[in-house]
Amino acid sequence: MEASRTDYFSLGEPKPDSMKLAVERRRATWLLIAPAFVVLLGLNLFPIVYALYISCHYWMLARPQPPRFAGLSNYQELFFDARFRNSVLVSLKFIVLAVGIEMLLGFGLAFVFNTRLRGMATLRKLTLLPSLVMPLVVGLVWFYMFNENFGIVNWFWVVLGGTRVPFLTQGALALLSIVATDVWQWTPFVMLVFFAALQALPEYVYEAARIDGLSGSQIFFRVTLPLLRPAILIVLIIRAVDALRSLELVFMMTKGGPAGDTEVLPWYLYTTGFMSPDLGYAAAMAVLMLALVTILSQLFVRQLESREVTR
């Protein structure tokens, strides 16, 4: 931490009225940080505790019966719930496929775009547009494009000599279609991160490598890749966590069908809590999901921490 350099404390210290300054400093710190802290306490930390509490109850939405304490039976039920297991599995499949493809494509494309050829910068900027579009709209338009009867994806497919494909209603295809949609939205972002990382690589390292007589592939594996490792990890974790929580595409495109093949964990949780509507059971799922996300986010935090230290 660069605390000593950036902190006023050292500045106030030698003065005679240091007591007064220290008090002002403490008050200022408190005033600056407290509001944000309170908001996050109330809307992040407290809900986690509350979720734990809810998950230990039979707690239905909009039923006359009041919640009853249930011990760990919601968790016990989760353990035997085949649909829950399926949803975790589907989520994993989705994350591995979507994020995997995005990483590979994004990585490769970053090299394609990493050039000073004229016009490339403009193209690169255009590719960024999908990243921040409302996911519901993304789901809507791809749902339309994947339609079996008049969808344009099917039309391309037929033009290329295929027969119409029920993209969203046939087992594995449905999940792949959602993966494709996610890939469309997020590959550009991944690509951009890698691009930025490439641009930031110090030129002298390559010169040194070349002077040492390394071949092209040696440079890639021994120099470029290790230098990109932090960027790879960061984008990997961000994408994995975001993919884990996304349910808009499923909501718009398949509602979890066919036969649960696209029923990702967030969708199952959401329908359990607000359609079944079993809040206690949904809360138990939420707690497990939070545990998983915490592990992933800790990885991210570690990564950032190590960068801060080396910076």
């Binding site: 339609n147 969203l168 209603t169 495109m253 398949t254 509602k255 979890g256 069908g257 066919p258």
Partner: peptide
């Protein structure tokens, strides 16, 4: 048009 639950 194919969505199962979307409209019942």
């Amino acid at each position: 048009m194919k969505q199962n639950t979307s409209t019942r």
